[in-house]
Design a binder for these strands. Structure first.
Lengths: 148, 148
DNA sequence: CAGATTAGGCAAGTGGCTTGAGCATATAGG
DNA sequence: CCTATATGCTCAAGCCACTTGCCTAATCTG
């Protein structure tokens, strides 16, 4: 692995990553959810399993609680999430996806599949699965966050 | 390629991309260039071949000319680039890297190699080169820009 | 040489984030 | 118990990278 290889790998990885984000973003917008930014996707990903508190969301996104609260305010106003009283802790609130939030999540999954499909066609099934396995092998398994 | 595969590919790609950016950023900082953000790296990449005008830089980064000018102001103040009169066009200015800018570019290349090295060790030379080739195959070949 | 176009700069406004302070609820110690 | 500390969240103000809107200077077009 020479330096030139490292550079071309970097270029390929960043370009592919950006293409993926752009594709998902465009696909979600095309499906009628045109008031969202990519960062919201990471929020949905954290909320989907069963909701989360503001603090948990802030840790996941690596922003302050105030920033997370503001994001939830916006998503609440747009009807994607709702604040509920937390069942175990009177101080906390549990943020959960609304039906509209779930619909958007499904749209994102579909957009993801649409974006990846031409890649599978170009590389073939075998190499595509190898690509997925290798990426997962080298990537850290932490929370998924915006790149920068 | 099922939907689940597309999702895991997305997760791997975004996580790897972020790990790469973080690694490069940390490596550049560790080498003494601690007043730069990842976005500046994309600027350097465009300027390295032989300089560029504000307008060309703005197009490359996909921001307004004012934003590009502001970025150049900052990099000029920090000593990484300099504005020269454009040889062919009296209106334009050619932005070029200073020696410090070149030193930073070399540091970024080294940081890139450092970040990628453990991946090559984990996957082996063969799969690593295949990964690079596949990524370049599926990624668009346009200008390299921040992901979002 | 007059009009349109292009390169760049100046000024003000915006959005997403931060830091700082404060209130309500929960947990721990005497 | 009851006080002291920690935790979850919110309100308010400020910051910074970026935007839109307008301007001047230089170049191209007919």
């Amino acid at each position: 692995m020479h330096d030139d290889d490292a550079q071309s790998l970097t270029v390929g990885l960043l370009a592919a990553s950006r293409a993926l984000v752009d594709g998902i973003s465009a696909g979600v917008r095309a499906r009628g959810f045109d008031d969202l930014r990519p960062a919201h996707g990471f929020t949905f990903a954290r909320l989907a399993p069963g909701g989360a508190t503001i603090t948990q969301l802030a840790e996941h996104l690596d922003v302050t609680r105030q920033a997370a609260a503001q994001l939830v305010d916006e998503l609440t106003a747009k009807g994607y999430v709702e604040r509920r009283p937390h069942p175990d802790d009177g101080r906390a609130r549990l943020i959960m996806l609304t039906e509209k939030g779930w619909a958007c999540t499904r749209a994102a999954d579909a957009a993801m599949a649409d974006t990846v499909r031409p890649w599978a066609a170009a590389l073939g099934e075998r190499r595509m699965l190898a690509l997925r396995d290798d990426l997962i092998r080298i990537a850290p398994h932490g929370p998924l966050r915006p790149t920068w």
